[in-house]
């Protein structure tokens, strides 16, 4: 593309860019633009190409998809809000209180699983000779690492009430005074020191925590709520 009226055509890609208006308003391309315009003026075939291209562009613009119904936008926005708020809540808490948030997720999952398992298990054992106070040993670190990275949005903290824990579950999970409800927390062994246990009012018996490595679920006190 050196001669405005010469036989050598401009580079096809440059010509396409010219067709796309990429030379408009560009001082650095002013010379190139002039040369292409001069070349086009004496090349009817190129003018035909340009006309064809513009017609295709016009057709493209005329067939732009119509907007969806406004109700579809509203529904989509609601879904985007729901998904992003859930996602942001998780990432926000990972920054500030990763362990607490991960525990809550675990609590939700564990609580739901526990309720479901209750139908298949036997009644919680209560024995009269507790070791009080009892300090729970640390939880296995592998399990903790897995919990921290996993999001299990099974149920909200207010959506689960643990009414009964039975059978084998009592060896792996100790639950506070039943029914446990409200915002539930899961403590790994070592996180909580049990200072005092009160006998249950119905039978005056207190739980025997014979599994020193068991984690603990309890409902947060009002003073502990965020």
């Amino acid at each position: 593309m050196t001669s405005p009226h010469g036989s050598r055509p401009p580079c096809p890609k440059l010509l396409a860019a010219f067709f796309d208006g990429e030379c408009e308003g560009r001082d650095d391309l002013a010379q190139l633009k002039q040369e292409i315009e001069a070349w086009l003026a004496v090349n009817p075939r190129a003018q035909q190409d340009l006309a064809e291209y513009r017609r295709l562009l016009q057709t493209w613009q005329n067939t732009s998809p119509l907007d969806p119904d406004p109700a579809q936008w509203s529904a989509m926005l609601a879904r985007v809000e729901a998904e992003t708020s859930m996602g942001l809540g998780i990432s926000e808490c990972k920054c500030e209180q990763p362990r607490t948030r991960a525990r809550r997720s675990m609590v939700r999952w564990t609580a739901a699983a526990t309720v479901a398992a209750a139908c298949l298990a036997v009644v919680l054992l209560w024995q009269p000779a507790p070791r009080v106070p009892q300090v729970l040993p640390p939880a296995p670190t592998v399990a903790r690492a897995a919990i921290d990275d996993e999001v299990l949005p099974v149920a909200d903290g207010q959506e689960v009430v643990i009414v009964r824990v039975e059978g084998a579950d009592t060896h792996t999970l100790v639950v506070g005074q039943l029914p446990v409800q409200g915002i539930l927390e899961l403590a790994a062994p070592g996180d909580v020191v049990v200072m005092r246990l009160r006998p249950d009012a119905s039978d005056n018996m207190i739980p025997h925590m014979n599994e020193s490595s068991a984690p603990l679920i309890w409902s947060k006190l009002d003073s502990e709520l965020d």
Binding site: P65, M76, T84, G87, L88
Partner: peptide
């Protein structure tokens, strides 16, 4: 819509894109 050719898929893609962009 241009890339997928129909409304339903286009809406799904837009929703996914908004969620991804924010997250």
């Amino acid at each position: 819509h241009r890339l997928l050719g129909n409304e339903a898929d286009a809406l799904d893609a837009v929703q996914e894109a908004f969620v991804k962009a924010i997250l």
